[in-house]
Design a protein around this nucleic acid. Structure first.
Lengths: 240, 240
DNA sequence: TAAGGGCTTCCATTTTCCGGAAACACCGCT
DNA sequence: AGCGGTGTTTCCGGAAAATGGAAGCCCTTA
């Protein structure tokens, strides 16, 4: 069963990049002998590595494979110059993200020189309902995804986080109508983000870009124009 | 069998980031029905993705996992500021690489503003015998690796590529003695690279950094000082 | 309309994986 | 030294899952 091996790999995360065999077996909930055999196979192929200390880590081989993901590094490559422009002009935080299931995955993040510290990490995940990029991606997601997200429990991060499905639906409609989203202090009380959709050649929304600024520092609509323009430029670059 | 699934993933490379089921089965040399079932499992987990066009691609999930590799993105993170300094000061190309088996794997590459175009790609591989980083990593590799590399056939890229094992051994000895390596036009006739070792807290060489400059533009020894200093700074940052 | 290429499903066979158990290695503690 | 604790490795028979040929489906092209 291939699922077993994948469960083992799942045991790694940003906090735990190095694990002992026992920890792996515990976290993946399987007998030690099974974990041992599977890890040996993964090791032989290079998916994981292990040195004298006996700890397992994600291997280079897996990283190489991962860097072939079109929606990850592929997207990142073509978008990067535009994101840097945006960062240069505004001196604010720029984020690039895609949707995976019912979550946002951050693909790139450029920290602006004098900007609010952001808590997202490249490769990290977040709820679709709170961030600027999340709202854009949710607004253009298939109906079934929207229902699943709006029907389920909605995480609250601050007093300003919108958790009412009716209100969220209105925000999504606005996002579609305006071509940009605003998340005002929904993640932290000192930050606001403005997101815009990136489309493929067929017009499908495949990613989102956003600016994250300190609350009150600028008017959202000024940012919206910049972000939308940048998103459109990226869309064009992708279609070329 | 887990090896089967890994063989399928191996079918992807930088040239072929999107494959049909048939191509996958062909490249991994297995029946269509087997490939189909395995790809379905990988898809369900998110290791690969597939949209309406039916093509398979590496999935985000795999990219996320890959970005947990300590020797890849982990090393990159701590080294990046130093590499950028080096790039700022010299305006030349900076490369960061590690050894995997008998090859160099490039972990980061910063293109200098007015520098020679380099042909390496992040996540790409190269022979240990030709580049500046390769010579450093080979010079400090276990004896068995050195034997395997020097004993086997040695790729030639230019008229200046050193392919004689005796001469290579001398270069490796020099590299160890000097604390830096010089690859003079061994990869392309217009470029020269100078590499230096990055060590972990135990003094083991775990990576290498290099400057790649146009041949004749600067004296190698001036570069060597810069690269060595930078490599030592990175080593210290890693041990902290 | 027929042929070709690609994709998906089915299912009996057989191969492989599974995981308990036992042994091993290495601590720190008494 | 002896002892409990923790982590690792190997073994092997029973059980379960992978395998891949075949047949059917859906396109596009000739």
């Amino acid at each position: 069963m291939i699922g077993r091996a994948l469960r083992l790999l799942d045991a790694f995360d940003a906090q735990r990049r190095e694990l002992t065999l026992s920890e792996l077996a515990r976290r993946a909930d399987m007998p030690l002998s099974t974990a041992h055999r599977l890890m040996q196979e993964l090791c032989a192929w290079g998916a994981v590595e292990r040195d004298a200390d006996g700890l397992y880590r994600i291997g280079l081989r897996l990283w190489e494979l991962g860097s072939l993901a079109p929606r990850g590094p592929g997207l990142r490559e073509t978008a990067l110059p535009f994101l840097e422009d945006l960062s240069q002009i505004t001196k604010e935080n720029v984020q690039l993200a895609v949707r995976e299931g019912t979550e946002v995955v951050f693909v790139e993040r450029i920290a602006g020189s004098g900007a609010v510290p952001v808590l997202t990490r490249v490769g990290g995940r977040f709820a679709l309902t709170a961030t600027g990029v999340g709202l854009v991606l949710l607004a253009h997601a298939p109906a079934e995804v929207q229902e699943e997200v709006l029907g389920g429990p909605i995480d609250r991060y601050t007093a300003k986080t919108v958790t009412d499905p009716r209100q969220l639906r209105r925000m999504l409609a606005d996002t579609r109508a305006n071509g940009f989203s605003i998340s005002d202090r929904q993640v932290t009380m000192d930050a606001l983000s403005v997101g815009a959709p990136i489309r493929d050649r067929h017009g499908e929304v495949i990613a989102a870009v956003s600016l994250v600024v300190r609350h009150g520092s600028t008017t959202p609509h000024a940012l919206a124009r910049l972000v939308r323009t940048s998103a459109q430029a990226i869309s064009r670059a992708l279609s070329a």
